[in-house]
Design a protein around this nucleic acid. Sequence first.
DNA 1: GTCTATATAGAGATAGAC
DNA 2: GTCTATCTCTATATAGAC
Lengths: 192, 192
Amino acid sequence: MSPVDTKTQILDVAQDLIQRLGVNGMSYQDISDRVGIRKASVHSHFPKKDDLLLALVERYSDRFLRIVDSIVASDDGPEVKLRRYCGLFEATLSSGNQDKTCLSTMLGAETLTLSASLVEDVWGFCEANEQRLATMLEQGRQEGSFHFSGEVQAMAALMFETLQGGMLLARVRGGATGFHQTIGQLLQLVKG
Amino acid sequence: MSPVDTKTQILDVAQDLIQRLGVNGMSYQDISDRVGIRKASVHSHFPKKDDLLLALVERYSDRFLRIVDSIVASDDGPEVKLRRYCGLFEATLSSGNQDKTCLSTMLGAETLTLSASLVEDVWGFCEANEQRLATMLEQGRQEGSFHFSGEVQAMAALMFETLQGGMLLARVRGGATGFHQTIGQLLQLVKG
DNA sequence: GTCTATATAGAGATAGAC
DNA sequence: GTCTATCTCTATATAGAC
């Protein structure tokens, strides 16, 4: 077994490709080229593309939510927590080969071309994020540092949607400056 | 010439397919099937896929911004203007075969697989929308009905990003209820 | 402008040898 | 697990007849 086993390498490469090009903009050939194996070998690990995608979303969701939960559970104040949470998306955008969106952003765009179970998993990831956001917003309200109007749940959903849309637009604009500005604006709105 | 000429039919069908499935989820075959002509005939109108896409974005942008400008120029109050503007995106989501995103949302996701000139046109569309939003927000501030904190330009960008992200998420959720709620929340934040 | 026919390339996927 | 080889389908695109 190499330092990183092939299955992991396949997932790593696939994730990078999908976050940048989308599911329908990437192929098994692209994966095998980068991993340095043959297309058939990729199929032996993930027979169908949907198998790969399901495994990928599960891994991505677990990893991401684990980090989010560590932020929520930390003893930072609510505002710092929100900043750190938003920072995860900024980090995604600039990581690796650059210009990556959140996996759920890309799969969200391609929803109508994906299997029902995959969409369900993406939905679960989004729901989980909104729940974590709602928790942080609730903490800030009770603590007295957040003063936004409207329901906590609605504000959480809005924040997640803004982050998703912001990542898309950052790539169209060709830079992360606008996305950074949006996050600043978002936090200002939350503080009220 | 039929009541609707073929070139227009091609653009109509292509737009519907792309707004739902994306550029990379749709083909010339799909278009020709629905228009009722042969694939080669589609190529005679738009030799390369990029020709079709450029024509499509131009038409979409012109039409959409024309409606937006009529809203901006109307004698409605700033809040009604914003509501009407957001209503355009809600209408898109529910129109025709349902589950459509804004064209720029879909092309934004696929940015890294598209030609530079096409991305530039998408960028222009987004910029134009943010400008119109900034105008409406500025009017509301001067009139005294909007009290959000932060720069007008930053708030305009945030609004557009939220609408784009909201359309994506609406499809993942399988309904427009959440998107409608988000627009309500957005307007509440603007009023401050 | 639309058609038939075709070129070329790439997709996802499987069989079977090593 | 990885390979070669192959299957089948579909993609974009063009040539040339009607």
